[in-house]
Each structure stands twice: as C-alpha cells, then as structure tokens.
Amino acid sequence: MAATTTPLPVAPARRPRTALVGAMLASGAAFMTYIGLLAIYLVERSNASLAGAEWFPEGVVELGPSGWIFWTMIMSIFTVQWAEWSIKTGDRTNGLWALGLTGLFAAAVFNQLWFIINDTGFTLVGSTPEFMFFVLNGAFIVFLIAAVSFLALTMLRALFGQYGARQADGVGAAAMFWNTVCVMYFITWYVVYVTK
C-alpha cells in the first residue's frame, strides 16, 4: 500500500528588499564607526607630524604582508559575489562552495594580520602611535569577525534550504556587509601601511 502525503502549503512570498535595505543601513552605520576611529587616527598622526615627531619607527610597519591581505580581500569580493549569484540562480552547491571559500580567505586574513602584529612588536600600552595601530587594525578584526559570523549564519540557512532562486536576499545582505568590511581594510591598508 502506497503511503499518501498531504503537501504542505508553500510559505508566502517575502519582500525581496527588506534584508538588503536593513543590511545597507547596518553597513553604513558600521562604516561610520570605522570612520570615527580613522578620523582620530589621522588627527593623532597629524599632530605628531606637526610636532616633528616620528609616527612609526622606520621599517617596522612593512607593506608586503599587508599587501597580501589586500589581494586576499579583493579575491573574497569575487567569491562572495559568486556565492550570491549562485544562490540566486538556484545553484546551491556552487553557492556553498563560494561561501566556504570566502570563509577560507577570512582565515587567511586573520593569519596574516596575526603575523603583522607580531612582526611589528607593538604593544597596546606602548605609545599613542602603537595604540592607534592596534585600534584601527583591531576594529577591522572585530568587523571581520562580525562579517564572518554573518556569512556563517547565512551558510547555515542556505544549507537548510532557506535561500535559493526564490529567495536570496539574506545572501545578498551578508555579501553587502562583507564588501563594506573589505572597503574598511582597503582604507586601513592605504592609511596605515602605505602612507604610514
């Protein structure tokens, strides 16, 4: 005897822009927090310059490793957009691969930053420049952790089938926040490591 099942009703449609608008506003707020820190960093550096003092000792903050982070973040922008596109087009396998790859890039960035911080030998209590170095990089790490957590939760929901061709707004929201964090790093890279 064949078992009979009653199909459950399909969940009602959602507004496709709600999550994206929320993420847009949250990303803007997060970015402005970063800008607040950056402004204080620049004011302190400018004050040091006006006083004729050295900001970082020569050769301590190197461009090389930070450049690798830069390129890793660039690559992560492609993978996170790949994830969004894959989920949107109903290709969940590719979407999960892309999300996983983005997570891997995040781990690489953590590793590189850890190396940089150890390499400089800076301490939080050392001096105002050292402190500000930690503040700006630390803020980036905090936002990176938030973005990775957002992606992980998105991945969890994608695994359970919430996101697909019918609904991909959550993945788009996570991607938007990720891209914002990438921009934060690009600014950090330019301000802290390039112009020193």
Partner: peptide, 25 residues
C-alpha cells in the same frame, strides 16, 4: 545611523585606552 556610530568610536577608543592603552584618551 550615520552619526551616532562616531560616538561609539569615541567610547571604544576611551575604553580600550582605559583598559590597557597609554591613557592618551
């Protein structure tokens, strides 16, 4: 949303400095 995060930045810098920084802020 655009402006109050700047105050969070001020508070964060003061907190971190108070807890282990050179006490500049």
């Amino acid at each position: 949303l655009l402006t109050l995060p700047v105050a969070i930045a001020n508070l964060a810098i003061m907190y971190v400095d108070l807890r282990g920084g050179p006490l500049t802020f």
